[in-house]
Structures are given as C-alpha cells and as structure tokens.
C-alpha cells in the first residue's frame, strides 16, 4: 500500500442485515487533499466515513491511514483495542450533532484527548488548545460549558477538539446539517480556512457551493457505489452520469 497517501480505501464493502450499504468502494486521499462525498440520503456516505475510523466495521476491504492499516493487525487478525485506539487517534472526526462532552468546559473538551490519550502535558495541551480556539474564532469561550454555546459555536469547538489530535486526516459528517441556516456560514468558513492551510479532509456535505469551492476531488455515492469521482469543475459542470445530473438539478 502506498505510504504517501493520507487515506487509502481499497474495495470496501459493508452490509447491514443483508442490505449492501457499501459496494467495493475504493478511494485515495493524498496529503493536503480535500475530498467531498456527495450522494442522496441513505447512499452510504456516513457509513463510508465511519468505516475510515472504524466506528463501523467493514465486511471486506482495507483502509490505511498514513500507511497504517486500521482495524486489522499485521497478522491479519482483528486489532486489539489499544492498537485500534492508537490508529483512531490519527483521525479527527466532526459529527453532525457535535457530540461535545458537556461536563467539560471548552478548553477541557479540547485538551481531554491530547492529555489523556496522547499523554501530552497539561500546559502544552492548553497552549495548543488556545491557539486552536483562536483559529476557530472562539478565544473568549475557553471557560464556557458546551451547554451555553450556540450550535455554530459548538461545532467550531468540535473542530478544534479534533484538530488538537494533530490528525492525519479530518473527517466531517454533515458538519452543518444540524445548524440554523444563519450559523452554517461560520462553520464552513472555518473548514475553508483549514483547507487553505493544507489540512487533509474528507467531508460529507449537502452544501453544493461549498463542496465546489473547497474540494480537490468530489466523490458521488449512489446505493453504496462510487459512480463518479472527479475534480469539482468537471463534476458540477459536466457530470458524466444521468444520476448525478438529476441529483445536481434537485440541489441547484
């Protein structure tokens, strides 16, 4: 497996009770690349993303993160929990529903994993956390608790929390779908800034203009199959399948 890819997915398949949700999905993400995954509801976008950090276990196929296989060890056996956690720590995930830890303030949400998973010192982790809060525009919220934040603020904290792990790849599962329309922009702006800084990202989204602006590669999933994979200009202006043309018509 090439070591110079950030994420390499090879012939991935996954079923939920006899329903094939992913079928032979292969995808390579180069370092610094932004890949957006589009597709109708139920097409398998979340499942694909969640397989990347093994929140879902694929039935067949392989996934490598920065050259390291996830979920299966060198001997071909199921990875032990500790090893799996180590590989997972190299991915940063941002969920639709934020999933912050409500008993910890913003700063501690961000330092929790660096300190208790990576073993960083508290001081170092907090310095880094403050830089990240600055980056997502929330320097003044370090001591606030998640319950007191707006959705857009929560999501920006979640992004900072994931970045604090210094992951090889950031995974976003519809990061703005749970937000009020007027809060979507602030989150998308942060993600765009990250792409400008060269972060590797895989993003599931329904925001078409955002996908077009931010992606290096657009992947379209239809019933668990990748039916198009193209640069954004090609994908949006001259899609090669009728399925994608219909999809784009409905999402203007």
């Amino acid at each position: 497996m090439p070591d110079d890819t950030a994420v390499s997915i090879h012939q991935l398949s996954k079923s939920f009770d006899d329903v094939e949700v992913l079928r032979d999905v292969s995808l390579e993400v180069a370092p610094g690349e932004v890949v957006t995954i589009l597709g109708a509801s139920g097409s398998g976008k979340s499942t694909l993303l969640r397989c990347i950090n093994w929140l879902e276990q694929p039935d067949r196929g392989s996934i490598h993160i920065a050259g390291q296989r996830i979920g299966v060890d060198d001997a071909g056996k199921r990875m032990n929990a500790r090893a799996l956690a180590r590989v997972r720590a190299q991915t940063g995930m941002v969920f639709q529903s934020f999933n912050l830890w409500p008993h910890l303030n913003v700063l501690h949400n961000i330092t929790e994993a660096p300190v208790h998973v990576m073993g960083k010192s508290k001081g170092e982790a907090q310095t880094h956390a403050r830089e990240l809060l600055d980056k997502v525009g929330l320097s003044d919220k370090a001591q606030a608790y998640p319950g007191t934040l707006s959705g857009g603020q929560k999501q920006r904290v979640a992004i900072a929390r994931a970045l604090a792990m210094q992951p090889e790849v950031m995974l976003f599962d519809e990061p703005t779908s749970a937000l009020d329309p007027e809060l979507v922009g602030e989150v998308l702006t942060v993600i765009k800034d990250l792409s400008a800084e060269g972060y590797t990202m895989v993003i599931v989204t329904h925001e078409m203009s955002f996908a077009r602006a931010v992606s290096d590669q657009v992947v379209f999933l239809d019933k668990g199959l990748i039916i198009e994979k193209a640069a954004p200009a090609t994908f949006f202006d001259t899609p090669s399948t009728q399925r994608v043309r219909d999809f784009l018509k409905n999402h203007h």
Binding site: A85, R88, G92, M93, N99, W101, V117, A158
Partner: peptide, 12 residues
C-alpha cells in the same frame, strides 16, 4: 454520540 466522539479521539 459522546461515546463515538471519544472512540474517534482514541479513547480506550
């Protein structure tokens, strides 16, 4: 969701 977030961040 909180558990998945923890798993994603490498918590055992």
């Amino acid at each position: 969701g909180q558990i998945e977030a923890a798993q994603a961040h490498g918590f055992t």
